Simulated scan of single mutants.
Amino acid sequence: MTRTPEITLREFTPADGEAILTAFNRIFAEVQEGFSPRSLAEWRWRFVDNPAGGRASLALDEQGRVLAQYAGLGVRLLLEGEEVLISQSVDSFCDPAVRGGLARAGLFVQAGRPYAERHGFDGEGEDRLMYGLPVPGAWRVGRDQLQYSMLSPLWRLEGEAVALAGLEADTDVCVEVGDRVPDGVDALFEHAAAGQPALVIKDRGHLGWRYDARPEGEYLWLRALRNQELVGWMVLAAGAVEGRQALWIMDSLVVQGDDGARRALMAAAGRQARDQGLDTLACVATDACHEWDALQQLGLRVVHSGYSFAGRSYVPRRPVAWWAEHISLALGDTDLL
């Protein structure tokens, strides 16, 4: 009689990086076309160096090999004036070789449930919301067994680089190109956050980690100045999302109503795309985007992407429908690029 192997479920530690990557790189190479193996430096950037913390629940066999992982990246959020945590679910997997066995059926769920119990709670230091972009199979399992709900479609907005480069900008706004977080981002975020019910915190700590410190990322900064004061910024990256090659707006911030700064940044981004030989400038947005009208007035058109955000709320008075109405997520709030 064959003995049923023992499965251990536990939280990850920084020392687990190589074991996780051995399984992650092998499994994703089998299912994802064009997959590039992840380095240990990239893994540590995500799960160890993240100022909001990394989380992962692992399922291991008796030899310590990782069979399944349910993981997420912490995100700091300003929720009605209070700094709290939410998380983006990423990099979850289950070894195809153990999905079908009866003793191991639901191993993905077995890893996911303790993850949710450990990290999802309406309290200090816990995740008030978990969100992600699940593939169809993970969505079905999450909906049926892990209480996922649909949060928002992910919309794509795109425009012709040459046309955007020709936008006339206010002469009192100067846009400069840089390679790192500009000075003044904290004060600008504080100004922009006033009165917002839910806003991902885009301060120097977050931006420096997300863009400047990423080992496998190449990003370009634009900073908009008026009288030498920072009035807006934008982060750009060339690449493909859903097979669409473009210069992508990863993230940007302008105080609501400052159309001059927004227009100047968009024109500068169009010039960057044109100069890089790219026909398209694009970004993504959720239903709660505050700049829908402004972006379309500047010449971007809305296209439905193939992605949708799923989520689970841990705040009783804030169901997923509330988050869908109030939280705006950018491309930089995903790990797509």
Rank of each mutant, 00 (worst) to 15 (best):
R3D: 14
T4P: 09
D16L: 07
G17I: 04
A19F: 09
A19P: 13
R26S: 15
E30D: 14
V31S: 15
Q32R: 15
P37I: 04
L40Q: 12
A41R: 10
W43S: 05
W43E: 05
R44P: 08
R46W: 10
L58Q: 01
R65I: 01
L67A: 05
Q69F: 01
L73F: 07
G74Q: 07
L78Q: 11
G81E: 04
E82V: 11
E83K: 11
V84W: 05
Q88W: 12
S89W: 06
P96R: 06
A97R: 13
R104H: 10
A105I: 06
L107C: 04
Q110V: 03
Y115C: 04
E117S: 11
E117N: 10
H119E: 11
F121H: 15
G125L: 06
L129Y: 01
Y131K: 05
G137M: 07
W139N: 00
Q145K: 13
L146Y: 02
M150G: 14
L151N: 00
P153V: 00
G159C: 01
G159L: 00
E160G: 14
A161G: 04
L164H: 06
G166D: 13
G166K: 09
A169Q: 10
T171G: 14
D183E: 15
D186F: 07
L188P: 10
F189W: 15
H191L: 14
A193W: 05
Q196E: 14
Q196S: 12
K202F: 05
L207A: 08
W209C: 06
R214E: 10
G217K: 02
Y219I: 00
Y219G: 00
L220C: 13
L220I: 11
L222E: 05
R223D: 11
A224I: 04
G232V: 04
W233L: 12
V241E: 06
E242A: 10
Q245D: 14
A246G: 09
M250F: 05
S252Y: 13
L253N: 05
Q256F: 10
D258A: 08
D259P: 02
G260E: 08
A261V: 03
R262H: 11
D275F: 06
D275P: 07
G277W: 08
D279L: 03
A282N: 00
A288Q: 03
A288H: 03
C289I: 00
W292I: 02
Q296C: 12
Q297W: 09
Q297S: 13
V303K: 04
F309G: 00
V315I: 09
V315G: 09
R318M: 11
V320K: 01
V320H: 04
A321R: 11
W323I: 00
W323N: 03
W323C: 02
A324T: 09
E325Q: 15
G332I: 00
D335L: 06
L336T: 00
L337Y: 06
L337F: 07
